[in-house]
Amino acid sequence: MKKYILSIITLVTIFLSLFAKEVITVKGSDTMVILAQRWAEVYMKKNKNVVIQVTGGGSGTGISALINGTTDICNSSRPMKKEEKIKLKEKYGSPGIEIKVAVDGLSIYVNEKNPINELSVEQVRDIYTGKINNWKEVGGPDAKIIRYSRENNSGTYVYFKDEVLLGADFHPSTQNLPGTAAVVNAVSKDKNGIGYGGAAYGKGIKELKIKKDSNSPAYAPTIENIRKGLYPISRFLYMYTRTKPEGEVKKFIDWVLSEEGQKVVSQVGYFPIR
């Protein structure tokens, strides 16, 4: 009997100590979920009074959660859309606060057996919008191009559509796969495949060098090229909050932007913001 009472008391104290802590919820981009988890781990180790809960689901999911009030901070790998700002403004009187937290280079990958090593941004655009249908047209073998893309709940999808395709629609034969890993897997198994996504280290694929236009030199998506502004398809990764950050949330965000937080960014494989 004594045992039971003791264990109940310990359980209760554990629960109470959990509730005594400040809980920050972070939700959104799948691209950023590993980064956010590392941030949370390191930060919680230093600040025992804070619990940070990180979940993924996609940038759109995170922003929806921010609008619906179920998360404190939302991660997004794309800027917020107009309709989303309107929803926020209608509900909370302000269209939200934008915080740039890291930089990411968007890689274009093909199968490692593909002889092509570089493409221009325009060629990538023409491939995905259906103007170019055969690898022959960009200097490769005579084979049909199989296009792979992310699902449209992905911030990467929206970024790629807005910035690389300049708002045009994907060719209808583009296959939408859930997650960067699925795209990498598909391209590694399909010798005529092409895909895009964050930096990936998969077997059987290679990252293409990208030219800004047909006359400029091609650059690989490395940290130097992105920092120097040479690699042409880079993007910011964002955090959004409903109101100006306060209290523990502000402390956490300030820490993320500090040198220490930015060190985590490079450890995970993205690029620091400054």
Partner: peptide
């Protein structure tokens, strides 16, 4: 939108 933590590098 208001911007928080303004210092950052330029990217293309």
């Amino acid at each position: 939108q208001e911007v928080y933590g303004e210092e950052h590098i330029e990217i293309v």
